[in-house]
Design a protein around this nucleic acid. Sequence first.
DNA 1: TTATTAAGTAAATGTTTATTTACTTAATAA
DNA 2: TTATTAAGTAAATAAACATTTACTTAATAA
Lengths: 198, 198
Amino acid sequence: MRPKNLAKEQAIRTIALQIIAEEGLENLSMQKLAKAAGISPRTIYIKYENKEDLLIKLYIEEVLGDYEKALLENFHSEMDFAEGIKKIWLNSFRYLSANRHAFALILYGKSSPLLNRAYQQKNIAEGDYFKPIRSFLELNKVRGIITDFPHDVYRALLFSPLFDLVTEYFDHMDRPRQIITEQTLASCCEAVIKGMLI
Amino acid sequence: MRPKNLAKEQAIRTIALQIIAEEGLENLSMQKLAKAAGISPRTIYIKYENKEDLLIKLYIEEVLGDYEKALLENFHSEMDFAEGIKKIWLNSFRYLSANRHAFALILYGKSSPLLNRAYQQKNIAEGDYFKPIRSFLELNKVRGIITDFPHDVYRALLFSPLFDLVTEYFDHMDRPRQIITEQTLASCCEAVIKGMLI
DNA sequence: TTATTAAGTAAATGTTTATTTACTTAATAA
DNA sequence: TTATTAAGTAAATAAACATTTACTTAATAA
């Protein structure tokens, strides 16, 4: 039996993310992807059932999976609160700024009904969101270190300003002056920490 | 000369937003839109040059224009800081939760390169973002009430957790239990205020 | 060596796409 | 009343779309 060419599978993923980041999800077509990856359209269908399957697997398994791994590096539920939050922010920023094409698909995950639905289903199956972060917050809540908010509020405070600044970071990179730095990010992180502390 | 039927123009906008919210921007086609609006495809081209023009005008002029108006209702640059922020949050929440189809396009504004570019160009032409909010923040900064952050950080803290919670609010409405309330939002708003105060 | 089998290709499929053509309608201004 | 004109329609166009068909290739196992 002829073995799979893993470089081709990788090319499909890489080029798909590139097209999504540069031209938008609404301009990704199977033929364009195949041509840009230097393969036949049929080859995409060896691994993926159809276009929706490709997008969902790319989003859930590849992109979110990788991001989750990077996010939690050297993070532990028992860390000091401020240290833990700073670790998450720095891990996120490092990963997302080094993977701007992946970041583009993460952003689509918030707007596209297809990807959004896939994410909800994953959460129903695997639990709401990154477990170590959930228990970290729970721990600091019961210890009386942070205010008792619903988890949605913790998540909103913790991730959304960070994502917003990463977007801004890329926008500025494409223009003359670059305003957002790791230091800007750190100061925003401090504000978030302050807002959560009792 | 035959006069324009304004109801048809309105239908194009309303139905376009509905399709984007329910099926995604990537599944909006001119023919689907025309059929759903009960008009001929040609009629869309009376007002809009092409599909991109329709999307950009819908986003920049209709949706963002309306949101900006709603946002600033009864808001003044000279307001007390906490009062001002709460006003913005409540105005936003009221508008966005009453206009979920518009909100869907606002979310695409953050992911779609087409809409994102249009937004940048609007900002270059008209100034970075909502002017009264900008001067409100500037005023509170020079008065020593809030920490001196770059404006991108203010914006990230002020708007992105709010948007995140509105998304969550809609998600929960589609499922059995509704968790996010105006009160949840208010508690997140308090955390944001706390994080910004000196 | 050769039969087997999945990987992979090029080209074709039928459908959907954005946009246009050729025409009709409904109002106004003369 | 009627000529004019933009609004509007239905149907057509050509390109692009997702997916499949029919075939070839490259490895393994016998």
